[in-house]
């Protein structure tokens, strides 16, 4: 999933203060699973904005709404009337959702209520960690199923570096050295010989260094 984190209320207040009538729009997929864009967070944030505005003279109105996914045109079209009625939309979606909203409602002010953090997994309730950077050409077959691009601080393909200590990355005792994990796993699956190979330099084009990416399935597309 894409993990998302709500921006600090201070930042949101500054961002939204000029728009009297505000629509707080939740996104009930990844953002909700990340506890940033669900109905409950919409309610919480809207209440917080209302409270912040209270007594400022310019209270305006703060509306609450949610859609299943802001990254799909059909869903966001369902709230077009609500969008039309407000001065600005505070979207609690990931960056993709905010942008699709902005494209769809070209004359409306669109504000991001969240920071999109990473592609990751839930470790436990309230704890997520990164697993993938969407590099466009997966190497997990060669690295025992653990990604050195997403999880090695130096994105080494021939790691670990000399900073790996007791299983931890040199940048922090709280970060696992993914190369240690890779080696542990390779040894468990009896493939330590894979370490002898020199991994060639990576083609970063599919990772986005070749310009904005687009995926087209000719067989599906109309």
């Amino acid at each position: 999933m894409i993990t998302v984190e709500q921006k600090k209320i201070e930042e949101i207040n500054t961002m939204t203060k000029d728009y009297s009538c505000l629509l707080v729009l939740g996104c009930e997929m990844c953002a909700a699973i990340s506890f940033a864009g669900g109905k409950r967070q919409v309610a919480e944030l809207a209440a917080a904005i209302r409270l912040s505005r209270k007594g400022s003279g310019e209270e305006g109105e703060v509306f609450e709404e949610s859609v299943a996914r802001q990254c799909e045109p059909e869903f966001i079209d369902l709230v077009k009337d609500k969008v039309a009625d407000c001065d600005a939309v505070l979207s609690l979606a990931c960056g993709a959702g905010v942008q699709l909203m902005a494209e769809r409602f070209s004359d409306k002010v669109l504000l991001p209520g969240c920071n999109t953090t990473f592609l990751g997994v839930t470790e436990e309730l309230g704890v997520w960690s990164e697993r993938c950077v969407g590099c466009g050409s997966c190497v997990l077959d060669k690295t025992a199923g653990l990604c050195p691009i997403a999880r090695c601080s130096k994105q080494l393909l021939n790691g670990p570096c000399g900073g790996s200590m007791k299983g931890k990355c040199e940048i922090s005792k709280d970060v696992d050295c993914v190369w240690q994990l890779i080696i542990d796993r390779l040894s468990r699956v009896n493939q330590l010989d894979k370490l002898e190979e020199i991994f060639p330099v990576k083609d970063w084009t599919p990772a986005g260094h070749g310009g904005p990416r687009k995926l087209v399935r000719e067989d599906l597309k109309s």
Binding site: I9, E44, A48, I49, L51, S52, G55
Partner: peptide, 8 residues
């Protein structure tokens, strides 16, 4: 924390 940020 949230309340403080909202002026309480």
């Amino acid at each position: 924390r949230l309340l403080e940020a909202c002026g309480k």
